[in-house]
């Protein structure tokens, strides 16, 4: 500052480290101008680009999250359906097996009953025929005995 005052007094530039002069305000004006220029050319456009990209990223991430949630929901839904279908199939198989078993048993029982009935009928037939045969034989034997007795008596 003193050198500046001295310069003003002397009217001739002498220089020095702390030589303050019109460089100061002009530099300040220059830096302010640079601030406005850089704001227009650099800070605003780059900031806009970066913020647009950030919002683009966040919206697409939100969309992706939404889609992922939807996919998971669909997956659990389909899993549920698959499990239900499996259970139905299992139930059907069990039903079919029980049905088959029942049919088998009933058919078996019917067959056995029929067999028993026919065996019984055959046995009754055999019995009656045997009885008839026995009666016939008995009758014949009586007649022959009578004949023998008659002949023996006649011969005396």
């Amino acid at each position: 500052m003193t050198s500046w005052l001295l310069l003003a007094a002397a009217g001739a530039p002498e220089g020095g480290l702390f030589d303050l002069d019109a460089t100061l305000p002009l530099m300040a004006v220059q830096v302010v101008l640079l601030t406005f220029i850089l704001n227009a050319l650099f800070f605003r456009p780059v900031g806009k680009t970066v913020e647009e990209r950030e919002s683009y990223i966040s919206t697409s991430r939100a969309e992706a999250k939404q889609q992922l949630a939807q996919t998971e929901r669909l997956e659990t839904d389909l899993r549920q359906q698959l499990r239900e279908a499996r259970q139905q199939a299992q139930a059907l198989i069990v039903d079919a097996e029980q049905e088959m078993d029942r049919l088998y048993r009933s058919a078996l029982a019917a067959a056995q009953a029929e067999a028993n009935a026919s065996r019984e009928a055959a046995r009754r037939e055999i019995d009656s025929q045997r009885e008839q045969a026995e009666n016939t034989l008995n009758g014949e034997a009586d007649r022959l005995g009578d004949l023998i007795v008659t002949r023996l008596l006649a011969a005396q």
Binding site: L7, P13, D19, D21, A22, T23, L26, M27, Q30, L34, I37, L38, L41, F42, P45, V46
Partner: peptide, 27 residues
């Protein structure tokens, strides 16, 4: 009627020029 330091302005213009060139090239 004012005195200014020419060498400071010369180098500051180079600095500003370099900055503006970088910024213009990048944007």
């Amino acid at each position: 009627g004012f005195q200014i330091h020419g060498q400071v302005f010369l180098s500051s213009w180079l600095v500003i020029g370099a900055l503006l060139a970088l910024v213009v090239a990048g944007t």
